[in-house]
Computed example of a mutant assay.
Amino acid sequence: MVCNIIDKIRLLFRKDKESYLCFYRMLGFYPRNIEIYQQALLHRSSSIKEKGRLLNNERLEFLGDAILDAIVADIVYKHFEGKREGFLTNTRSKIVQRETLNRVAVEIGLNKLIKYATKQSSHNSYMCGNAFEALIGAIYLDRGYRVCKKFMEERIIDRYLNLEKISRKEVNFKSKLIEWSQKNKFEIEFNLLDQSVDADQNPTFETQITVENIPAGSGKGYSKKESQQEAARETLSKIKSDPQFIDAIFAAKAEREQAQEAKTEADGMPQQEETVREELLESKKTAEKYDDVERIISEAEEAAFLEESGKASKENKKEKV
């Protein structure tokens, strides 16, 4: 409170009062080194040269990313007492992910202050979320960890983020849908329907998901992944709330499984016939082999008998002489 009063007095003697007031309305305090905050809003597409090197918000983004992770981990750890590591890690990830930071940046008006080239799309590059991280880096360098944490708690989480709701929110809809399909043995496909550009020449994608060849959810986005996530989210919503869709995919699944069973049986019959033929042939060969052995033994015995008879006849003739 005292610091803000002192900074407000100093503001009377500054030339760029409007910039200071703009940051004050966003942050809840006056910047001491306003240049570092201005750098946080400078996208690389609008880099400026200073002392022989390009100046933009990328280094501040790197710093802010690490500081934000630590602050959110601190807040989540204290808010969810007794929760296990996996739960805490998941919740932190949901808060610091680009989609959440993009939304927060727009909520606080940061998107209107970012300086970037006209052709650069915030949708495509997550520019707003990156700038928010750079802003955290600037606050940390200007005011330190304690003020950073206070800003996140009072100006961001208390106003725009519900920790309880976020902790229960499913974020990776595609992964969740694939897990559901594998568990319930449904066949799903992600089909890219369209790839085009918007009015600002940014690439856009449209994906449709089919479950057992039945159209489910569809989604659009500025990347394939984004369109797939949106399509998966819509599909999961349909699975939960559309009884007719559920009946249709279960019927299609049953029909597919019956067809597969019939094909398996049809493929198995020739194989069974071939096996029987092979067994009969083998039996015949064995019988023939057995007959051959019997014949050979019989012939050998007969030869031996004739030989013995011949010897006996000779012996008799000698005795008579």
Results as ranks from 00 to 15, higher is better:
5 I>L: 10
11 L>S: 00
13 F>T: 09
17 K>W: 00
28 G>V: 08
28 G>S: 07
36 I>S: 06
39 Q>M: 14
39 Q>K: 12
43 H>D: 15
51 K>F: 12
54 L>R: 05
56 N>S: 08
59 R>Y: 09
62 F>N: 13
67 I>E: 05
73 A>S: 15
76 V>M: 11
83 K>L: 08
88 L>P: 06
91 T>S: 14
101 L>T: 05
101 L>V: 05
103 R>C: 02
104 V>A: 09
105 A>S: 15
112 K>E: 15
113 L>A: 03
113 L>F: 03
114 I>W: 07
118 T>L: 10
119 K>N: 12
121 S>I: 10
125 S>L: 15
129 G>K: 07
130 N>S: 13
132 F>R: 15
135 L>I: 06
136 I>G: 11
137 G>T: 04
146 R>F: 10
147 V>D: 12
151 F>Y: 11
154 E>Q: 09
170 E>G: 04
175 S>M: 02
182 Q>N: 14
191 N>A: 01
194 D>H: 07
197 V>S: 12
201 Q>L: 14
203 P>F: 02
206 E>I: 03
209 I>D: 01
216 A>E: 01
219 G>V: 01
222 Y>F: 15
223 S>I: 01
226 E>M: 12
231 A>V: 00
236 L>R: 01
242 D>V: 04
246 I>W: 00
247 D>A: 15
264 T>K: 15
266 A>M: 07
266 A>D: 08
267 D>K: 05
269 M>P: 01
269 M>E: 09
276 V>H: 06
279 E>Y: 05
279 E>N: 04
281 L>S: 08
290 Y>E: 12
290 Y>I: 03
291 D>N: 11
296 I>K: 15
300 A>M: 09
300 A>K: 08
306 L>S: 02
308 E>F: 05
312 A>R: 10
315 E>S: 07
316 N>E: 06
317 K>N: 10
